[in-house]
Write a protein that binds this DNA or RNA. Structure first.
Lengths: 190, 190
DNA sequence: GCAACTATCATTAGGCA
DNA sequence: CTGCCTAATGATAGTTG
């Protein structure tokens, strides 16, 4: 069929697209673009980048270079001494304290990761590998595997949750009562 | 001063830049670009995006739209019913199980957030506000405040950690022994 | 849904402040 | 580290398989 002179695109307004499908398509394309950018940033500059996003439909995606896990770990453990000749940001003393505080986060993250791995594995079975190394859709669960796992963890979870609630209470009473604001663009209620 | 005919840029090779300063400059510029892209993605498509990155020097930056916190929360709670007419990905039954599992993660995250908030507040005091609403450097801690907080949390942490370790052990024994691999680009050892 | 295409728009390297 | 500048590269809307 003869190729029509592609009308190419107009300047796009920066506001929520009206058409649902357009939003999804644009999301896919632009997400790819951002992943490429992030990858380049990492390669060119030696930085580490992690991205977590939700599609308009609420479908979650994640990206990491070298991998999401190392990003989250690095955020808190900081056990290595990278190219920090110039930065004296976290002194050893503070770091020790921070590390201890952050253990909680790391450990809990492992649980999440494990769950996500399972989802990923299942999803990946029916996934085209050549799509791109950087994309890891995290959806759709294996019913049986997850149920077993959830039952198991659920029991433990209840115990842990009690402990954590205690921790929450004491911690919040030692600081300002309303210390949970974040910056962000603040489009909606946080 | 007369403007020199800007030599403009050559095609850039996709490999780690040799010059350290170039890397830092490029990191800043490209990071800004990625943030803009993420913001656009969010605005145009109604998606939620969170980005965590480390500069070549290890300096951490985060970005979130509408805010980082809502992203991490949304990842796990999923209490709302968005535009999911087409997706039947997580059925109610599975979601309940998942929610319980994810409570752990959320609670632990709160601790982290609280700590990060504190860092941020302190840092923000001496920070140029006009730089941009989307950037939140998370560095440099308040010695006294953090110490107090850390001492408190440390005690509780130890108790919780024990519980979590149990949870870890039981969980991993119920799945494959080596279930902690992640995808990512895998540049270095994960 | 993604892949290819291409005319247009958008980002950015490099230089300087 | 960021902003401004310009020319050059890069991303992508709109369309077709």
């Amino acid at each position: 069929m003869e190729k029509m002179q592609a009308k190419s695109h107009k300047k796009v307004e920066m506001r929520r697209m009206n058409n649902e499908e357009d939003r999804l398509v644009s999301f896919s394309k632009r997400r790819s673009g951002i992943y490429r950018k992030a990858s380049e940033l990492s390669t060119l500059c030696g930085a580490e980048v992690g991205i977590l996003s939700f599609s308009p439909n609420g479908k979650p995606f994640s990206f990491g270079h070298p991998c999401i896990k190392s990003i989250t770990n690095k955020l808190l453990s900081e056990n290595h001494t990278p190219c920090d000749g110039t930065q004296n940001l976290l002194e050893p003393y503070r770091r020790v304290r921070l590390n201890e505080l952050h253990q909680n986060y790391k450990e809990a993250c492992k649980q999440m990761k494990a769950a996500k791995e399972q989802e990923k594995k299942i999803k990946k079975k029916s996934l085209d590998r050549s799509k791109g190394w950087w994309e890891e859709p995290v959806i759709e669960l294996d019913m049986d595997g997850l149920k077993q796992r959830a039952d198991l963890i659920q029991k433990l979870h209840k115990r842990v949750q009690l402990q954590i609630k205690e921790l929450q209470t004491m911690a919040s009473s030692s600081t300002s009562p309303s210390d949970t604001q974040t910056v962000g663009h603040g489009r909606g209620p946080c």
